[in-house]
């Protein structure tokens, strides 16, 4: 099921949570909505589910306008951040709930409901736990019960709100791989919300980076990491450093001195680069400053260098080879090898 979000605007008490957001999600795609808290990613997910009504704009499921359809009519599988399992029902009853509440004509017979629920539990690898109650399960198991419960209604779309947020790091990694597998097996169009970029980059076919109620960039992991299209995306995804620079006569100047980098357009700009995309230089134009601190990070060393004037210092982190001398106070010169200017 393809989903199209067209110029959606959502206001809560006149405070806009989403400004004219448009997005097209392909059928069978696994897509991540990534952003800091308050970026509107959960609001967008809830709008797609029908748990919120848009102030303006429309949502299409395939070719049908679903904007004014109720949650029940949209037939989406929604997995809540804290799972929202029914605590007084057994695991089996939780999974069977969506079938049990169907109107008489569409409700399968009891034995069939039970068979389907057990089948779903097997699919999420929880066979044998059907008699337990949610409080008797681990976080990862609850998560999978929530998924099985959502799948029971044979949804066209699977929506997950921070699916791994409440789990510890190890279980999170396992479930991440498991969800990717699950998606590849079932082929559902899946949208999940996360604030964890590693999760988004590893799991999703495409990542939607959001900030302050707007979509900043939509693209593959490679796109958003290697070709960020805005200062926000550059600084939000991965490590980065940024410096205020001035382009004069096609040469990028920092603090009045040429950096050895060239650009087409003159003017004030911000220079972004990643710590690993620099090379240390012995001579020639570059950026030079004393090391203020350094730390060992696995196979490399990260040095913090103070640039600019002592009154208005800029600190940037760069990766230096282990053998380079980077003790505090030693002077280092470097030049970015991959970088981007935002005017």
């Amino acid at each position: 099921m393809e989903i199209r979000v067209e110029k959606i605007r959502k206001e809560f008490d006149l405070y806009p949570a989403l400004h004219d957001v448009s997005l097209k999600i392909e059928s069978g795609e696994l897509i991540a909505l990534l952003g800091p808290s308050g970026s509107g990613k959960t609001t967008l997910l809830r709008l797609i589910a029908g748990l919120e009504q848009p102030t303006q704009g429309r949502i299409f499921f395939g070719n049908e306008d679903a904007s004014y359809r109720s949650v029940q009519e949209r037939n989406v599988g929604f997995v809540f951040q804290h799972y929202a399992l029914f605590r007084h029902m057994s695991v089996l009853d939780n999974v069977a709930f969506g079938l049990k509440v169907r109107p008489k004509g569409q409700r399968p017979p009891k034995a069939e409901i039970r068979r389907r629920a057990l089948e779903l539990l097997e699919m999420v690898q929880l066979n044998g736990l059907e008699k337990r109650f949610p409080s008797q399960l681990s976080g990862g198991q609850r998560q999978r019960v929530a998924l099985a419960r959502a799948m029971a209604i044979e949804p066209k779309v699977l929506l997950l709100d921070e699916p791994f947020g409440a789990l510890d790091a190890k279980v999170r990694k396992e479930l991440r791989r498991w969800l990717r597998d699950f998606h590849d097996r079932t082929g559902h169009t899946t949208v999940f919300v996360t604030h964890d970029q590693e999760e988004a980059l590893e799991l999703a076919d495409r990542v939607v980076v959001m900030s302050q109620g707007k979509i900043e960039q939509v693209g593959s992991s490679d796109d958003v990491y290697d070709r960020p299209n805005s200062p926000f995306v550059f600084s939000f995804i991965g490590e980065s450093a940024s410096l205020p620079v001035k382009v004069e006569g096609g040469v990028v100047h920092f603090h009045g001195a040429p950096t050895g980098l060239t650009a087409q357009r003159d003017g004030e700009a911000r220079l972004f680069f990643r710590p690993q995309d620099v090379s240390l230089i012995e001579e020639g134009p570059g950026m030079t400053g004393p090391v203020t601190s350094s730390r060992r990070l696995a196979g490399t060393r990260i040095a913090e260098i103070e640039l600019g004037s002592p009154e208005k210092p800029c600190h940037v982190e760069v990766e230096v080879p282990l053998e380079a001398s980077a003790s505090n106070g030693s002077i280092l010169s470097f030049r970015p090898t991959r970088w981007k200017l935002f005017y």
Binding site: A49, L51, V71, Q72, F78, F97, G98, R102, A150
Partner: peptide, 11 residues
């Protein structure tokens, strides 16, 4: 949350 879960499941 629980009520939302229930209606998302068609109740």
């Amino acid at each position: 949350g629980d009520e939302e879960a229930a209606i998302s499941l068609g109740a």
